[in-house]
Simulated assay, not measured.
Amino acid sequence: MDDPDVRPLFPRPLRPRELVALDVLAGLGYAFVLVVNSPDRHSAAAWALVAAMTLPLAVRRRWPLPVFCLVAVASVAAMALGVAREPLAAAAYALYPVALTTRRRRWEPTAAIGALTVGALLLAVLGGVAAAPEARRIVETVVLGSLALGGAWTIGRAVRERRAYAARRAEQAAEHAVTEERLRIAREMHDVVSHTLSLIGVKAGVAAHVADRRPEEALEALRVIETTSRQALTEMRHMLGVLRTAPGAGTGDTGADTGALSPAPGLAALPDIAERAAAAGVRVDLDVRVTDGLPPALELAVHRIVQESVTNVVRHAAPAACRVLVDDEGGQVRVEVTDDGPGRRVLPAGPPGHGVIGMRERVAAYGGVFTAGPLPGGGFRVLARLPLEEERT
């Protein structure tokens, strides 16, 4: 997790041209240091070696390995000819992008390189070895060069591993988000399909029962089935629209229909649930006492809880009377759905339904409390309490 108190060195990631400009400045700065400290600064060979060690650094990010090889050869030649002191710093600067971009191999001794680098650092701190001045200078040059090269390689590999780890974490987070979105859409699809098919099933049964004796009532039931199915198809089309990665992606569509996607249903859509339930023989008394507006996600949760509860009444207790109460008193949203049908719910044969489970999951996602069960005097009650203060803040 990023620390909000730590400010990055740059306010934004640097562009490629800006990175090249920094490499150019670093190469020119190091060339100036080499020329000033060179014991043979007036020699043409010295100028050529200094140029070979520093100018290629400008393109080290584009051609890491060739640049490193050229700079390393020039650095060794400069060190052998005594043209420059500590010339391996340029090679270390060129080695970092090689370590950062090259694929790691199984036999690569990165840990050993890191250990040797630490040993070289300790040797440099402790003062090197006792020897003649010329030999001591050579040993110090080798030690400091090894320290620079080993440090550049180890840091480059560590940064590469960190970036790979961050990429894996980001990929896992994306997969988790996709899974959560699939579960959410599956829950929404279940609510829509279950509610709609329950109403259609009830009205189809009515139409089949009265088709011979009262054809006008059967025709009215078919009209209700048509209206309900159209509404369900529209809602499912809106819901599936969010699965598109981009307008018209892969379909040749220009995206002209994206503006037709309606917002998620909320409290304003509760009368539609009551109207459809009435068409299936369940009279719904809707009582909404929400004084202030709710967040859209919370409104959707309330809408789905009411929809699933009323659907269960239509499926298991019709004809019946149902009362729906939604209020936001006491820092929470209270959703209560009661009916006067048989308290015991007789589920159809087959796998258990997911209606109550889905409602319980919705309430649990908000840290609320959910109960559902028969009433002592008959009927059934669904009660959900969802915290409100955190959602509004």
Score class of each variant (00 low, 15 high):
R137C: 00
V178Y: 01
H190Y: 15
P133S: 12
R182Y: 05
D191P: 00
V193R: 07
L147Y: 06
L144H: 03
R160E: 10
A164C: 03
I185R: 14
S146M: 03
R184Y: 04
V192E: 15
A174S: 09
R160W: 07
E175G: 01
V125P: 00
S198V: 12
S198N: 11
R136N: 10
G151I: 02
L183G: 03
A170K: 09
L149E: 01
P133T: 05
L147E: 05
Q172M: 13
V178M: 06
A170R: 14
G151H: 07
T179S: 13
A158G: 12
P133H: 05
E181G: 13
H176E: 14
A124N: 04
A164S: 05
V159I: 11
T154Q: 06
H176N: 06
A130M: 05
T196D: 07
E181S: 11
A152K: 10
V202L: 11
A167Q: 14
Y165I: 00
A204V: 07
A132W: 03
V125G: 06
A166T: 06
L149S: 01
T141V: 02
L126P: 00
A158T: 05
T179F: 06
A130W: 04
A164D: 13
A167T: 13
E134F: 05
I138G: 07
T196R: 04
L183S: 02
E181T: 11
G156Q: 06
V125T: 10
G128E: 02
W153N: 04
E134T: 11
R157W: 07
V192C: 06
Q172E: 15
V159M: 08
E161Q: 10
G128T: 00
V142I: 11
L144K: 04
R187C: 02
A204G: 04
R169A: 13
V192W: 00
G201Q: 13
L197Y: 07
S194T: 11
R169T: 11
A131N: 02
G127K: 09
A173R: 14
R163G: 02
W153Q: 07
M189L: 14
R162S: 11
V125E: 08
G150A: 10
L126Q: 12
E161R: 14
A170H: 11
G128Y: 00
I138R: 14
